[in-house]
């Protein structure tokens, strides 16, 4: 490894190079005081450089010991086991769950996009509630972070969906064996509401700040299993002139979210808006934020109308087949699309 690639200030890098320290080895052969004198920095700064250099080299040394121990690496076999264990959050719609192989996957970033009114926020709220289904009922028993950038989050609606979810669970618990019913979990809608952490973001810089801060927040608040950003697009679509910078910032944000997903094995769900793009002589709908953004999420789901029904389409996923499935938005939340039965009219 060369000195030119150490993560230190560029001026110090320049000084090191001009003083003849071109390899890590040459730094180690020197002493702290000598290094400090040669590149005209204080002893403590020189020590810091030494530490960074030795850290970098220890990572390199690790790599020579065999393929399995490359820094941070993992074999495909180990990953397979991990994937099998990975948890999924149900969407409350059987068809949707089946094309998603059981639901929204933890440890992955899933992007969901669609036209206004298709039900993006509804899915977001449903997931924030469903993540809390206790382990006894096949859920995750986790908590949710809901980041609202558009102000479309409705508390009343969360309450409705939470109540419906509890009703469904108590119905389900009748199927449990008798002795099991004793440990039936008592859940109250209020406790569901209490376990959703809500952030209202009012500018893109706040959004970036929040994503940076989430690492600390999740460390402090245990059991968070899903981060929902509704929508990732809004602020980035409004006040940007420099599109290249927007792409860089979005890229960094996506990277951080992906890190969070892996580190805490939680699901990240990003909602995106739709824009009209001119391709091949015709106008087509496509998700906003451009082409480079489309690479940054692991899974991409597009919601659309087909005839009288709402459908979800898996547009991109490394593990799932491209497929479509109908779903419905009812007063109780996201449910199976049953075109023959009438939806209950809500109050």
């Amino acid at each position: 490894m060369e000195v030119g690639r150490l993560p230190i200030a560029s001026s110090k890098r320049g000084k090191l190079l001009s003083a003849g320290y071109t390899t890590l080895d040459s730094i180690f052969r020197s002493t702290v005081t000598q290094l400090a004198r040669d590149i005209e920095v204080s002893d403590s700064e020189a020590l810091e450089i030494m530490e960074i250099a030795s850290h970098a080299s220890s990572r390199l040394e690790g790599s020579s010991k065999g393929p399995a121990t490359v820094g941070g690496g993992q074999t495909a076999w180990a990953m397979l086991n991990e994937e099998n264990l990975s948890q999924r959050i149900t969407t409350s719609c059987a068809d949707l769950d089946s094309i998603l192989d059981g639901g929204i996957s933890c440890k992955e970033v899933t992007e969901i996009g669609g036209l206004p009114g298709i039900g993006k926020t509804q899915i977001g709220i449903q997931l924030a509630v469903n993540v809390q289904i206790p382990v006894e009922y096949g859920g995750l028993g986790g908590k949710a972070i809901y980041i609202d950038t558009e102000g479309s989050f409705m508390v009343e609606r969360v309450l409705q969906i939470a109540e419906a979810c509890i009703e469904d669970m108590s119905e389900y618990s009748h199927h449990f064996p008798k002795d099991f019913q004793a440990c039936k979990v008592k859940m109250h809608p209020n406790s569901i509401l209490e376990n959703i952490y809500y952030f209202r973001v009012c500018s893109y810089s706040e959004q970036i700040a929040l994503v940076n801060y989430l690492d600390k927040f999740i460390t402090e608040h245990k059991d968070i299993k899903i981060i929902i950003i509704d929508s990732v697009t809004f602020h980035f679509r409004q006040d940007f002139e420099d599109m290249a910078r927007r792409t860089r910032l979005l890229g960094e944000m996506a990277l951080k979210l992906m890190k969070l997903a892996r580190k805490f094995s939680l699901a990240v769900v990003l909602f995106n808006q739709v824009t009209i793009k001119h391709t091949e002589g015709s106008f087509q709908l496509t998700l906003a934020l451009g082409d480079s953004w489309s690479h940054s999420c692991t899974n991409r789901i597009i919601l659309f109308w087909k005839g009288d029904e709402r459908y979800a389409y898996i547009d991109k996923s490394p593990s799932l087949k491209p497929a479509t499935a109908p779903y419905a938005v009812t007063s109780r939340g996201i449910r199976d699309s049953t075109s023959n039965t009438k939806r209950i009219k809500m109050m």
Binding site: L193, E194, Y197, Y198, F199, R200, I208, L210, Y213
Partner: peptide
């Protein structure tokens, strides 16, 4: 900087 600037967290119960 992020920690200072980021918006406060509220639970949905508190909001309601």
């Amino acid at each position: 900087i992020s920690e200072v600037v980021c918006p406060p967290c509220q639970t949905v119960l508190f909001l309601m």
